[in-house]
């Protein structure tokens, strides 16, 4: 299960997500030839406290569902990529549906800190051409999974 601070998510098998991404990794990342830009930079994901993690993962996964996957879908030509894409997207929906970030007032500063990190990522995304940014963001799912893995208990 995932433990993002107080947020628990059961029933997601992380190796299944990795398997889905690895099946398309080289194909997708080869489409991204701007190797001098990284959206999920160190400042977004490093030294995230447990308390922040629930807010941050919720924001990131929702962005991936509502923006990245939604618009990247039309670029998918191969059924193999479609299946991996579907597996990732449906597991992200499962995770988001089980995340309950606290809305307590005393958590405001923590949620704002997480929001600032998310905005770093979102700003970098918006600064790029949309099509290019979609490909780059989908190619960086492994960076996202590597970070999420820190909160995963077998």
């Amino acid at each position: 299960e995932f433990r993002f601070g107080p947020c628990r998510v059961e029933g997601v098998v992380l190796p299944e997500l990795w398997e889905a991404f690895w099946a398309v990794k080289n194909t997708v990342q080869a489409q991204d030839d701007i190797t001098s830009v990284r959206l999920l930079k160190a400042q977004v994901l490093q030294n995230v406290s447990d308390a922040e993690s629930c807010y941050l993962v919720h924001s990131l996964l929702k962005f991936y569902l509502n923006t990245v996957f939604k618009n990247y879908h039309s670029k998918i030509a191969k059924v193999k990529i479609l299946k991996s894409f579907s597996s990732l997207a449906n597991n992200f929906i499962d995770i988001v549906s089980k995340l309950q970030p606290s809305k307590d007032k005393d958590m405001l500063s923590i949620s704002e800190s997480a929001h600032r990190r998310f905005m770093l990522f979102r700003r970098a995304f918006k600064q790029m051409d949309t099509e290019v940014a979609l490909v780059k963001a989908f190619g960086e799912v492994d960076i996202l999974l590597t970070w999420m893995q820190k909160f995963y208990q077998l």
Binding site: V12, E16, K70, L82, S86, S87
Partner: peptide, 30 residues
């Protein structure tokens, strides 16, 4: 998000049987 999209099953596109093992298609608890 895209209700017009359907994905061909791994095992039965097509098949002459009357059942299909969709275990490999169901990869999330949704």
């Amino acid at each position: 998000y895209m209700s017009h999209i359907w994905i061909p099953s791994s095992q039965c596109s097509p098949t002459n049987g009357l059942e299909c093992d969709v275990t490999d298609d169901v990869t999330a608890t949704v």
